[in-house]
Nucleic acid binder design. Sequence first.
RNA 1: CCAGUGGUGGCCGAACGGUUAGGCGAAGGUCUGUAAAACCUUUUUGAGCAGGUUCGACUCCUGCCCACUGGA
Length: 294
Amino acid sequence: MFNKLLIISGPTATGKTALAIKLAKIFNGELISADSRQLYQGMDIGTGKDHPKNIKINLIDIIKPNETFSVAQYQRLVLKEIARIQAENKLSIIVGGSGLYIDSVVNSQPTYSIKPNTFLRFFLNKFSVSTLQKIYKLLDKKNYLLLNNSDKNNPRRLIRKIEIRLFCRDVINHVSTNFNTLHLSLTASNSYLFPKIDQRIQQRLKLGLLDEIKTLLKTYNWSDPGLKTIAYKEFKVGAQLACALREWSSDEKALVRRQKTWFKKIPGIIFIDVTKPGLTGKTVALIKKWYNLV
RNA sequence: CCAGUGGUGGCCGAACGGUUAGGCGAAGGUCUGUAAAACCUUUUUGAGCAGGUUCGACUCCUGCCCACUGGA
């Protein structure tokens, strides 16, 4: 059975897509995006959908900016796409920087089958963190005590844990994902990436980002999930352009740091420094080796 | 030239005669249906310059420099 899965990950501005497109041509592959922002229709400049129009990338432009989305939904969609691509005897190539989304393909979590409960969340969202802590402690003292400082103070995660505890303590079906994976992760030093990000900001302004935002706002609101995206949210509060740009830049840099942190600890991942020469050749060699070995 | 106001860490910005708030930024993390999200930790003494008062000065006083505002 052809169950190979190639993953090209890495922080923003490392050139993942460009590389993935080349690889797809060489290895008869098809691209699937793992990008939690390029899912949104009409958000093109800000999220960097700058690939050639004739290249097909799956799982972009699939929802409207006012729709909510989550990993669990993503997982269902990717698995379907992968199955389809495999059936066509092609190589599935996942490209993207959303670590959690990639993770859902490789390490499925059983709790993904428990849906969010909007009614419950409506109330829980009004509670303070300490109240949420008390509720969760009451429901599941053992696991509450295992929580680290970061999770213990994170209302979103506490709410989710309460939700799971309340609505599904028994058997849950676990989607098994079992691929023969090669995970290549592009990387570069911040001193390379950061200036590149600042350049890109200027470029995106020139491409008409502000007009894109204007157009979006004709139909959608700042409170919609899509608009809470870097390159958009900074322009909110009647902000001055200079301020917004500064914020945008640092948001983008913070993102890079978090993305790096995420990928750093993934087992079996192979890092490739994009500032060193021979990027394509190196990755092609790695993939060929992978093909022969297995 | 005169008067007023003000000069605080990489930036913004309070309080205060005696262990220097806070924010931003920066660095490192957490991660099981919002993940470009949400959250955690760390950034341990800096006051325009020169003097003076004081046991002790970022805080009070004097001079100088600089900035802004108003007036000649």
